[in-house]
Every structure is written in C-alpha cells, then in structure tokens.
Design a binder for these strands. Structure first.
Lengths: 286, 286
DNA sequence: TTGTCACGCC
DNA sequence: GGCGTGACAA
C-alpha cells in the first residue's frame, strides 16, 4: 500500500494552487524515495517538476512503485475542503483505481475522507538534465511576483537581462515600456561594500545584498558566470508565480537558448521547478 | 395598530439574509404572541418557518391579528439600509396597505423611514405537526456550513447517516466521493469517556463532545433513537446554511421518510426552521 | 444555471 | 491584502 501523511495540509494546498493553473491532470510517481510529478502544461509549452521527498512527510510508506494519474482540478477541489490546521493523509492500495485523501482536524473530532478516481494517462517521463547555468538569481518571491505582474501590463513578454550591472527585468508594448532593475552597483553601495571597484567583469559575480542572516529572505543574490539576456512569456511567468506562498525566495537559473528554471523550495520536503523556453528573436519581433 | 421594536436591527437583517434566497414573498402573521412566517420556497420544495416571539422584542404591540403579505426582496433591500447599530421599529395600522420600517441611530441623530407596500397573497397556512425524531444532531453552524459547501462540489445531494458510530455526511459524483464523519467513538475516546463500551446499540445514544460550558458552542451532540440514512439536495441545504450568522449551533432533526428539520435559534427571540423532504431512492439513482 | 469579474468589507 | 459577496455573461 501507499500512505503519506502530512501534518500541515496547508503545504499540499499551496502545492496544488501552484500547479492547477498549468496542469489539468498529471501523473504522480510514488516510490520509496518520495513523490514526483513531471508534466508539460496543457499547451505543452512549459514544464512543471514537483518533488516531495519521503523523509519530508510525517509518515511515509510505499510498498511498491506507483504511477497514479490524477485530475489536478479535482485534487485541488478536494484539498480546498481541508481545514487550514488539518492533517492530510494520502492512501492508495497496490494497483489502485482510486486514491483517498483523509483530513483530520487537530482535535480529532472530525474526519473527512475524499476518494478520487485515478485516470489512465500516457506515461511521459521527461529526463531533465542537470546543467550549470550562466546566471543564477535568488530573490524574494514577493519581488518577483510583483515584477511579473507589473510588467505584464506593458507587453506579452518580459526580458530578463543579467549582467555585471545587475539583473534587469523589462517589457515594452504599444503604449510604453517598463523596467525593473536590481543594480549591483546600488546594492553594493547601499551596503558600503567596497569590493565594487575590484569586481571582475563578466565573470562569476556573486552579490549578496546583505550578509545578515535575519534578512536572508529579503536578499537579492546574483551568481553570474556569463551575462544573459532572455525573453519569456508573461502568461507562463504569471502561472509560476502562483507558487509564491510556498517559499520566501525564488531561484531563477538562466543560460542562453536554454529553458529558464524557476524554483521554489517547499519547506523541508522538496521543491517545485518550472521550466520555460526563452522566446527566440524571431518570435520577439512578432 | 401594530408596532414592534428591536434595538438590534442586526438580528432582523440576518433573518432576511436567511430567507431571501428561498422566498421572494411571504405572509407575516402578527398576533399578540409574536410574528410568524410559514412559506414554501419559490420552487415549492422546502418550507421555511420563522418565529419571533413578542416578548423577545424591546417593544411589542399588536391590537389585532394581521396577515401582511410582504415582498422579501424589497424587505431585504430596506433592511440593508439600516446601520449595524440602529434600532428598528416596524409599524402598521389596522387594515394596513403598507408597513413602515423606522431606523434610529444609537445617538438618535439619524431617523430613517421606509414604507413598503403590502402584497395580496394566497393564504396558505401550513400545519406542521410536532413529531419526535429518530435522530437529533446539534453541531456548530460553521462545521455544517463547511460540510454542505465542501460536499456540494462532489454531487447534487448529500447523504446524512446517523448511527451508533456517529454522524456521517457523504456525497458522490462522477470523479470521486467525499465523506465527513463525526465519529462517536473518536469523540468519546478523545475525551477519555468510559461510557463507550456500555453504550447501547441503536438506541438513544446521546453524546456530548464535552461538558464544558465554555465549549458548548463547539460541541457535536447526537441524540439517536433509531439510526437514519437520508439524502438531501445540496441546493437547498446551501440555502439553509445562510442562517448561520444567526446562531452558533444548528440542530438537525431526522426520521426516515420525513422532512429534515434544520433549526437555528434567533437569540432569545425565536427560531427559524427549514424543512426539506429527503430524496427517495429512485431519485438517488437518477 | 454556472463561472468569472469587480467591488466592498474585514 | 484576502475574502465574501453581488453583478454580469456564457
């Protein structure tokens, strides 16, 4: 049998909020090491990769590997029935036709069971190569969310430019253009960091806005090997940003002509990664 | 003349919120003992019974019995014009063609009068027999509201099953099924109540989650003579649940093949009861 | 009748 | 800022 318990059902609620706009259904691969979902969005443009490690659950048992096709919209509806403080348990038998969600209130007074039929799905397990990226940016989710939302008003896509000057997000459209800049210069100056003058050009710039552990969540960190300038569709960025409630920081990994990776940690239990191919120049001109 | 004053107009506001989705018009029977409304909903499926005792009003005078047909939607609009802290007075003359609503602000600075024309209505006074029920369940309105809302997502109707094991609400639909259980066993165990083993089967189980007066509002109480299993339309349950703001606890009375009674107390002044016939098995199978 | 959007309230 | 509600459109 398969059983996974999470005392904080809120985590799973947020995970579903983070994927439901992109996926209507997905295969959940359950094994001894945890739960993994990899799926292209409905339009087959972006890719969602979700990992929940078994050791992150409060109880986890998986006798044999299972591939369960689930309706994300249904699962999202079910999760919405869990109280904010409830414990959630997922349970399925071997060769399951359905999966059961069990919600228990903190005082054990209420027990809710939701049984969801599984779906037969094409198995499309996608190998995603681990690569090293030219630029890796970490920033507060709130900032990134805000930037995507704000710049979306000006055009269909946002250009991420990461250089020795900092990270710059920009968009332009018929009636104007917009730009949000996290300037290394300013950041350094603000912190009275004197390394600026000796900062190497175009290679391996690593900048922490602050070293205070207290403010780590608010830090903007740029780790650059090569400058990059890539353009992405707002539509998808605004879907990714729905994972914001999971985590205070988002990590953006970029290289030329390679999909952006937008990663949110999920507590101690795993992460969700969104992959999105950059627009090529021809498309930008459209 | 007829005059009824309520310092807390909020009560009357909530009463109207509790009926306006079911009734577009209704006859208000006013007598020395108070105000009574009994009416089938627009679709003639459920029945609403509202009682406001004269002694619950801050001032009450009714020289002769009156039957006043009122537009509920109009009355609801008028009540929405009362400030949260206002005092409301209803006034009508004998043989009235209209009724006046008077709102006074606490500091007496503001006086608002709304006159509403009465409607001629068919007199349909429905005798509702007082019966004893196989199961009477009391539970927090918030829980009941939540359950009706949650389970509505899974089907058109909800089955209420009350047995020695507790009270169970369940629904099933195309893509899964859902169930909310208040288990007597769990409740008793949690409270370290040792009466469980001696609990009679199928008869007169009375369970209080807790005897603490503090938590009375949060208690789930089941008083069972006979187990029952009845199915009701979500649509109507979700209308009844609108009475939630009136009262912290709702009382559900059930017997086989007899309408459910869903009762909310209205402060010290009266109550509102909703009656809804169970779906018969044939209908369930549709 | 249901889903979505905008507004106002908490 | 989030939620619940009312209005509108499909």
């Amino acid at each position: 049998m398969f059983e996974a318990r999470l005392v904080q059902s809120a985590i799973l609620k947020k995970v579903l909020d983070a994927v439901k706009d992109l996926l209507t259904e997905a295969t959940f691969e359950c094994s001894d090491s945890g739960i993994q979902v990899q799926a292209m969005d409905n339009a087959h443009v972006s890719l969602v990769s979700l990992n929940l490690r078994s050791d992150g659950f409060d109880k986890y048992r998986c006798d044999r590997n299972l591939s369960m096709g689930m309706s994300i919209s249904c699962m999202s509806k079910i999760l919405r029935c869990a109280g904010a403080e409830d414990t959630v348990t997922l349970r399925a038998w071997d060769n399951p036709e359905s999966i059961v969600f069990i919600f228990e209130s903190p005082n054990k007074e209420k027990l809710a069971e939701y049984e969801m039929k599984l779906i037969n799905m094409d198995q499309e397990h996608l190998g995603i190569p681990e690569t090293s990226y030219s630029c890796v940016v970490k920033m507060p989710t709130t900032e990134f969310t805000r930037i995507c939302r704000d710049l979306s008003q000006f055009g269909e896509s946002i250009t991420f430019a990461c250089s020795k000057e900092g990270i710059k997000f920009s968009a332009s459209g018929d009636y104007g253009s917009a730009c949000n800049l996290f300037s290394l210069l300013t950041l350094l100056k603000c912190k009275g960091n004197s390394t600026f003058s000796s900062m190497p050009r175009f290679s391996n710039i690593k900048l922490a806005q602050t070293a205070d552990a207290d403010n780590e969540e608010e830090a903007v960190t740029v780790n650059m090997q090569e400058p990059v300038k890539l353009t992405f569709s707002c539509r998808y960025l605004n879907c990714f940003v729905k994972a914001g409630p999971l985590c205070n920081q988002v990590q953006l990994s970029m290289s030329d002509d390679v999909p952006l990776v937008c990663e949110y940690k999920i507590g101690d239990i795993g992460h969700i990664r969104y992959y999105l191919a950059p627009k090529i120049d021809d498309e930008e001109e459209n």
